[in-house]
Design a protein around this nucleic acid. Structure first.
Lengths: 244, 244
DNA sequence: TCAATAGTGTCTCTTAGACACTATCAG
DNA sequence: CTGATAGTGTCTAAGAGACACTATTGA
């Protein structure tokens, strides 16, 4: 039986006994690990009837209408289950739904993407979870379902937004220097940025504040900063000018 | 019964007999009509068991797992049913899902937003559909479900993107002048733009081309343009500088 | 002629890019 | 001292804002 259109019904379209798609939530979790962008994946179980057994996939799962108040709560729950942390940054990425993406039937997933510092992803990682480096917007193993496509979209979104926002701040540890932050921008954008322009932009954005400590090393010490409390991301009115 | 997590299952998580949320698609359809931003709404039916009877709502309805190949196809179908046209521009806006947004149960909607020229929205409008002016990002009647919130998000997204993209081109008729286009930018942004900078930006974006015709009136004729074939939206590297 | 709108040119200001320069540490 | 990295200053180029100026029509 096909669903009635919500607004057509002269008949009783309050009837709800038609097939419903499966509803899932998946989270693309990013962190910087040894100078590279990484994403957290989980290995699919091997049980009978399981689609894509032992393939790597984005952390996620079915919406639980009893446990989850709303979609974001569901995403937070998945994140917490896999990493033990609630990410400092979580944004909706989009939804993917079609007849064929899951062999178990018509399904739609609500995808989120999360940013966290490396330190956060180390403590309580689930046993089936593992960090994978992202190179050229892709991952080495072929992912389950359409998760490769979702990951590509997430990387693209992240790259785009890094051009004109302060998102990389959420990938930083609690205390960091300006050169640290610039390195993270450069890792995500995969191109060098000009130091002077970078510093001017970041410092005039009023997003970080210096703390009374320096990072000392074999050379000139660097001022340490932390994120300001009001932690909404900052939007710049220009992008970093693209090369060529 | 609660759904098993996709990736936890040592037991058989291939079991699918747990409650599923309702899945719908809603479309926010924008057009410019007499110098103002308008959105297309449909009136909800009055039948027994219908939520929000006779309230105005975004056009949309349940995903039909038999008819709809994927979410976008479902959105295109809704759009066609209500306007008779397939919009020149359709973009996913996001998804809203929670236990309480629909009195019939846990539901999630996949929201899209569409842009079309005024002319398109005149021919085959559904009898229950009507254009409403958007003022200050809101609509006069209180909308059904959480559609007011979705509409607000759509207007905000549109305003943001108009600052740095060529999206308003999709609100224009087939032939238009540069002052026409500027007026549409100004309507959406709700502030005047500077003529000279506007023309420079649009003309250097290589998105429109002059045709061999002028718009004649009681004053100096204006060059008519049309959208170039390759109709992807253009992204500028700067926003129009915000006031103050 | 004038009113009205289309379209151009000229100046200033902001900010990115390039790049040289100074500053401060360990050894 | 040297090497290394942090941080600043100076010049140029691009594009926006402001605004004056010219251009082309109908009446």
């Amino acid at each position: 039986m096909a669903p009635k259109d919500q607004a057509q019904g002269t008949e009783n379209s309050g009837q709800l006994d038609f097939p419903r798609p499966l509803a899932t939530v998946d989270v693309v979790i990013f962190a910087i690990r040894n100078e590279g962008l990484h994403v957290l994946l989980v290995q699919r179980p091997a049980g009978a009837g399981e689609p894509f057994p032992l393939s790597w996939a984005l952390p996620g799962g079915f919406v639980d209408v009893a446990k989850d108040r709303d979609l974001e709560a569901c995403a937070v729950r998945k994140l917490k289950e896999k990493t033990g942390v609630t990410s400092p940054y979580l944004e909706q990425l989009g939804s993917w739904g079609s007849a064929g993406r899951d062999p178990r039937g018509w399904s739609a997933t609500h995808a989120y993407f999360a940013l966290m510092p490396e330190e956060a992803g180390r403590t309580a990682l689930a046993p089936d979870a593992q960090w994978f480096p992202v190179s050229a917007g892709r991952i080495k193993p072929k992912l389950a379902f359409d998760h490769g496509e979702i990951l590509t979209a997430a990387v693209e979104r992240l790259r785009n937004k890094v051009e004109y926002t302060s998102l990389p701040a959420y990938l930083m540890p609690a205390e960091f220097t300006l050169p640290d932050l610039q390195r993270v921008y450069e890792i995500v954008l995969d191109r060098p940025l000009e130091k002077s322009a970078f510093r001017t932009r970041i410092l005039s954005a009023d997003m970080i504040e210096p703390i009374a400590k320096m990072r000392r090393g074999p050379n000139r010490p660097a001022q340490l900063y932390r994120l300001k409390k009001g932690k909404e991301p900052v939007y710049f009115v220009r992008t970093f000018n693209p090369p060529e």
